[in-house]
Amino acid sequence: MSETFEEFRRSFSYGSRSNLDFKFLKSLPDDEAAEFFRQLLEELGDAYDHGELDSLIQLAIDWQIRGYAPEEGAPRRWVYEDGPFAAPGKPLAESRVALFTSSGHFVADDDPRPFGVEDMTQQEAEDRIGEFIKAEPTLSRIPAETVREDLRVRHGGYDISSAATDPGVTFPVAVLRELEAEGVIGELHTDAFSFPGATSQMRIVKESGPAWAQMIRDEDIDLVLLVPV
């Protein structure tokens, strides 16, 4: 079976070679994607001798940035002239801080069961990404003292392998607990919050976002640290 180069690079985005670290290849024109592979192999060849992978990793990150850069002149959907800015009522060291992420973390015995599916695997979440991005997001409440072993992560939009190994890469509740103990923040809210960010944007804007903001007000949270993925 013959395959065009375009089909090849697109296959990394939910296709036969799906790899969410490299799904940006779908967005690069053929010539740029070809240049990415050329540079990657050149750096790899050099690494045979010096054994350092830092420049290889940096190359991949640089190309990921290119892959996600907005296309020049293309219309952008969510561009605002200005944004709300709330001033803190008290210093950080006296404030109650909550963590809120789109990393898709949840507590093992509190699976949000997307589409009613029990124990959905990461693979199924990736396979059903088209359904997720049309659906209302489910917010998981995660007690801040939850131990790492009881945390789970599932998100059809990014490679969760790092976040599954160490939640701190997208869900820094352990750091926040330390900062609370050290007095850097006044208090860590009893619960953190997470949802899989690959979800209906319109529902976030019209329903979930305002509802979650009201919930945060009701729980007397002073400041919110947000982590998108």
Binding site: P84, V205, G209, I216, R217, L223
Partner: peptide
């Protein structure tokens, strides 16, 4: 949404 509700 959270900022609009007055929370930084």
């Amino acid at each position: 949404a959270i900022e609009s509700a007055g929370i930084p």
